[in-house]
């Protein structure tokens, strides 16, 4: 497989890479799910494990234990429409891994089209990955406060519409994560994404920051959607709205309307 500017990888390419043993596949589901069945050759990194300590040192330790070095192409998958996988992929990018992509379908879809799975647990010889942090893809609360004014950044809230209407970071626009996927794939085709973003006045030279509710999963998917559509310089506000609120930063609300009462949930 080639250097992943491609963001996502389709099942055929992944299968041939697995056959060539030229890729490390990471399964982001819970341990018990992984143990039941998974894509052959994959290793398990439950998102919770990563979130319990996502310091670069700890991440590198994990990566090393999976036998991944700076040159190993990595493919990440989950069963949560790509959002959890995105968060992990972004973390790898952040510590300086340059060849990571998302499987473009979920594990359920993989099984539905009857592709091979296994219960076999894989162990790989430990490797040494370097740490070359890429702060340019990370946004912090402090950064956000001035980003809009200073850099004309576009803040993208990837939560669902009603959550956004209720409260969001001032000036953010709303691109719900569901808008990014299709009924088969975790992300819509590139041209379609491009059109959606262009409709919203996002261009390839925009600076963009995505965020969601709490840990950067939905917005991780948002990050990769923008990347796939080749939309400029994108950052993830990884601690997202939960942190923003806990810091008591200002928020904005769509006022004077009872939109929640339109929901049939």
């Amino acid at each position: 497989m080639g250097k992943s500017n491609s963001t996502t990888i389709d099942v055929d390419s992944l299968r041939s890479s697995i056959r060539d043993k030229s890729v490390r596949v990471i399964d982001i589901r819970k341990e018990e799910e992984y143990k039941q069945d998974h894509i052959p050759g994959s290793v398990n990194l439950p998102l919770a494990t990563l979130l319990s300590d996502d310091s670069p040192e700890k991440i590198v330790q994990l990566v090393n234990s999976f036998g991944i070095d700076d040159e190993t192409p990595v493919v990440v998958y989950d069963n949560t429409f790509g959002a959890l996988a995105s968060r992990v992929a972004w973390t790898l990018e952040y510590i300086g891994h340059s060849d990571v992509s998302l499987l473009d379908v979920t594990f359920d879809t993989w099984k539905k089209i009857c592709l091979e799975t296994t219960r076999e647990i894989n162990d790989y010889p430990k490797k040494e990955h370097s740490i070359k942090l890429r702060p340019e893809i990370l946004a912090t609360a402090n950064y956000l406060e001035t980003a809009k004014k200073k850099n004309g950044s576009i803040l993208v809230d990837n939560r669902e519409r009603l959550n956004y209407l209720e409260q969001h970071i001032p000036g953010a626009i709303n691109i719900p994560y569901r808008m990014l996927s299709s009924s088969e794939k975790i992300l819509k085709p590139k041209e379609e994404l491009k059109r959606l973003f262009q409709n919203r006045n996002i261009s390839s030279d925009s600076e963009l920051v995505t965020y969601c509710g709490s840990v950067g999963t939905l917005s991780g998917l948002g990050y990769y959607a923008l990347k796939k559509a080749e939309m400029g310089n994108t950052k993830l506000y990884v601690h997202s709205f939960k942190e923003w609120k806990s810091l008591e930063k200002p928020t904005e609300t769509q006022e004077s309307a009872h939109y929640w009462d339109l929901s049939a949930e």
């Binding site: 519409r161 009603l162 719900p176 569901r178 808008m179 339109l262 929901s263 949930e265």
Partner: peptide
């Protein structure tokens, strides 16, 4: 409705 509206 899921992509562009409120899911209902």
């Amino acid at each position: 409705s899921e992509y562009y509206s409120i899911g209902s």
